[in-house]
Simulated assay, not measured.
Amino acid sequence: MPSKNSKKRFEVQENETIGQCLDRMKREGYRPIRRAEEPIFREETRNGEKVMEPIEKRIVFHAVKE
């Protein structure tokens, strides 16, 4: 059974390409098993109502230890 530390999330940093993130994962001994795009929201008030507006997306890789 895999240990709890065998999984890790890697987020593509602001000034990093997807390829650079994948290289960083490989250097740390991980391989990607899933890619997810998570929206980042900003809360705004419009006409007295709070509205959540997406402003960008974050790319996250779920990885396992090789």
Results as ranks from 00 to 15, higher is better:
Glu56Arg: 15
Glu38Met: 10
Glu49Ser: 09
Gly48Met: 06
Glu53Val: 15
Val64His: 02
Ile40Tyr: 05
Pro39Cys: 03
Arg42Ile: 09
Asn15Lys: 08
Gln20Phe: 00
Met52Ala: 10
Glu56Phe: 06
Ile55Leu: 05
Lys7Asp: 03
Gly48His: 08
Cys21Ile: 06
Lys7Met: 12
Asn47Val: 04
Val12Arg: 02
Pro32Asp: 06
Arg42Ser: 13
Met52Val: 01
Glu43Thr: 10
Ile55Trp: 01
Arg35Ile: 11
Phe61Arg: 05
Arg42Tyr: 07
Glu28Cys: 05
Lys26Asn: 14
Pro32Trp: 07
Ala63Gly: 11
Phe10Gly: 07
Pro2Lys: 11
Glu38Gly: 01
Arg35Met: 15
Gln20Leu: 02
Thr45Asp: 08
Arg34Glu: 15
Met52Gln: 14
Val51Cys: 01
Glu53Met: 06
Arg42Leu: 12
Ile40Asp: 07
Phe41Gln: 00
Lys4Met: 12
Phe41Glu: 00
Lys7Thr: 14
Glu56Ala: 13
Ser6Val: 08
Pro39Ala: 04
Val60Trp: 02
Val51Ala: 01
Ala36Arg: 14
Asn15Arg: 08
Arg9Gly: 01
Arg58Asn: 09
Ile40Thr: 14
Arg24Gly: 03
Lys65Gln: 14
Glu28Val: 02
Pro2Leu: 12
Ala63Ile: 06
Val60Ile: 15
Glu37Met: 09
His62Glu: 15
Ile55Lys: 03
Lys4Ser: 13
Glu56Thr: 14
Ile33Thr: 15
Glu14Asp: 09
Arg27Thr: 12
Val64Phe: 02
Thr17Gly: 03
Phe61Thr: 06
Arg42Asn: 11
Glu16Phe: 00
Arg42Gly: 03
Gln13Pro: 00
Pro32Thr: 07
Gln20Trp: 00
Glu14Trp: 09
Val60Asn: 04
Asn15Gly: 01
Ser3Val: 05
Val12Tyr: 00
His62Tyr: 15
Glu11Phe: 08
Glu38Tyr: 08
Met52Ile: 00
Met52Asn: 11
Glu56Tyr: 09
Ile59Val: 15
Lys7His: 11
Val60Glu: 03
Cys21Thr: 15
Thr45Arg: 15
Gly19Leu: 09
Ile59His: 04
Arg35Ala: 11
Lys65Pro: 03
Gly19Trp: 07
Glu49Asn: 12
Lys8Pro: 04
Arg42His: 13
Lys4Thr: 12
Phe61Asn: 05
Gln13Asn: 04
Glu49Gly: 00
Tyr30Pro: 05
Val64Gln: 10
Glu38Leu: 13
Glu14Arg: 10
Ala63Arg: 02
Phe10Ser: 07
Ile40Gln: 13
Glu11Gly: 00
His62Cys: 07
Ala63Met: 06
Lys4Gln: 12
Met52Arg: 13
